[in-house]
Amino acid sequence: MTSPAAAAAPRLTTGGRPTAIPKSRPATPRERLSSLTTHIALIVFSVIAFLPFFSMFLVSLYPADQPAVGIALPRELNFGNYARAWDVTNFATLMTSSAIVALVVVPLGTILCILTGYAFGAMRFPGRNLLFFTFLFGLLMPFEATIVPLYYDLRAFGLVNTYAGLILPETALFLSFGTFWMRAHFLSTPRALVEAARIDGANSWQTLWRVLLPSAWPAITTMMVLFFIWSWNEFLLALVLMTDKSVQTAPAGLGLFIGEHTKDSSGLAAAAVLMSIPCLIVYVVLQRHFIRGVTSGSVKG
């Protein structure tokens, strides 16, 4: 997500891939020591980043009478927690709702952001800056307050408790970021590419899809992964706008579990693990592209 920013404030020093590091020269002792320190530090921070998840995973396997106390191995493995969590929260329904929302939000948001990013990044037109700021607005405002008017506005459109009622505002919020991100990408595209296409007689639409898009995939993949994660984890909008059980999404369902079954810590942990699985799968499968995209994807200065 950061790369949008990094891209928008582009670095002029180098271009593209990390500068090749000379491998021929043997490492000096100072460098070896430093490399060791780096590894130790990275390992320490990785452990810290991972610890809460690890402890939660352990708890999700506890037998019913083992309290969630500190880090401790399960006395015996109890996979029944997962079955219980699945049943109690009616997870199949929750997951279906979440999936429906995410599977519309991600492509819809992606297509719209490609279009806006292209317009802002590769074209010049009056009111460009004002419009761009309009798009950025959603990134800065604290959302806790606008949700009250949003609820009434959506109700006026008859959208409360419908999938559209969650999908549309969610997409609109993500557009702020996505526009920002894709604009940064298209800004960094060599101008010559666009001009060449134009000389070949391509119109703007053809230029976008045939010439620019193929090289934009890393940036798009990253954005899609982020959209998926955000959509899947969205809590407050889902809580307020989807009050009907049949359309509730997974985080709201976990909220119900927290409210009702806090003393069932192993069941709660299992529910938490279950609801994280889709995001983890997407993240793990795409993480190579994703992390590269986040860190350098569109930083092409």
Binding site: A5, F137, L139, F143, L173, F177, F180, W181, L236
Partner: peptide, 14 residues
Amino acid sequence: NTAVLPPQAPASIA
């Protein structure tokens, strides 16, 4: 991670 909102990418960057 804002469960509510996408990250606040800064307007300042524009």
